[in-house]
Amino acid sequence: MLDIRWLEDLVAVAETRNITRAAELRNITQSGLSRRIQSLEHWVGAPLIDRRHAQIDLTDAGTKFLEAASETLARLNSARLTIRQDKTERLRQIRFAAPHILSVSFFPHWLPAIQTGLGSVRLSVASDNLPGCVGMLRDGTADFVVCLMDCEGEIAARADRSLAGEAWISVGRESLVPLSAPGPDGVTPVHALATATSRAVSYLAYSPECSLGWAVEGLLGRRPALTHLQTLYDNSLADGLRTMALAGLGVAWLPLTMTEGDMMRGRLVRAGGADMTIDLDIRVYRSQQRLSKKAEDLWQTLLTAQRPRAQPAEAIAV
């Protein structure tokens, strides 16, 4: 079996042209180096050095093999350095997977607090729908999944089963509010939700793969007397539904944090009462596998900072 040290020995001999000096460079006895060179020659099947003179020369076979040995060592050392750098970088990195809406509304405020508490750390967020995020947690490409769960359990019931066994921490609150563009008076919604009416209301829905839509569907299922909603448009992103709502095309259940400014400026108004609001919990799920030190430090910090769930919360600062 080839020993990588034999290749390094040959390179040292080729550089010094002297067994004694090569042995000193390799921190080995002269006899030990000679035996290792002989072992390499036996492995190659041909003499590699010419020992007839005080200044050692390589044989033709040795010259050819030296080129291959030098290239092999260079590639191995480069690969080792890259792997070590990747490992070091991985230990300093915390990887999140989250639905797009949280990347826009939650992480910009939460990530700076994390970095303040953890010091030098690289944070990355991959955006996907909830099943995609769960897949990243399962295959090890994400340390944590940050997602929204409704209090009625509609999202949890339809989320990937693997989340059921994962530990989680609540780190904030969100709400989905039914909103519409206002009418001429600036107060009355163009598309108002009501009961005991046969008038259809234009509805801007989330795409089937969007977990926010699962929560809205659950609410509508519990309100059989609600106005008939006629789906005009669907989108997997809340941003897309907000744009359509601002254009007056229908009612949409939109995150409160995203639309507070629109409501304050009168660009959007509530299309239904408080009973039409969906309360959401922002949760951080972790894998049961051992995480990097930085990721484990974050989890322990979140456990320490977790507030009682009975209290309303903004984002938990680390």
Rank of each mutant, 00 (worst) to 15 (best):
S180L: 12
A181Q: 04
R158C: 07
C210L: 11
G186V: 05
P184R: 08
T141I: 13
D185Q: 02
E152L: 08
A181G: 05
L268V: 07
T257W: 10
V269K: 07
A192T: 03
D139K: 08
M276H: 07
G132I: 08
S202M: 10
A192F: 01
Y233M: 10
T277V: 11
S162Y: 11
D185Y: 01
P182R: 05
T243A: 10
V171M: 06
D185C: 04
W214Q: 06
L137F: 08
G153T: 03
W168V: 06
M244H: 09
E166G: 01
T259M: 01
H228K: 12
R242F: 00
E209A: 10
G186S: 06
A247G: 03
L212K: 11
W253R: 08
G248C: 11
L163A: 11
Y203I: 10
T277K: 00
L204A: 10
P189W: 00
Y206V: 07
G221Q: 13
T231P: 15
G248R: 07
T188H: 03
H191N: 09
M244Q: 14
E260N: 11
C210Y: 06
I278W: 00
F144N: 04
L232E: 04
A157M: 06
A238D: 12
L148S: 09
A159L: 05
V216P: 03
A252G: 15
R222C: 12
G266T: 02
G165R: 14
L219A: 11
G250Y: 03
A225Y: 12
A159P: 05
D275E: 10
P189I: 02
A271M: 08
G153Q: 04
G261E: 07
D239Y: 13
Y233W: 10
Q230P: 05
A200T: 15
A164S: 07
A247V: 00
M263W: 00
E152S: 11
L148I: 04
D150N: 12
T195Y: 07
G248T: 08
G240K: 02
S162K: 09
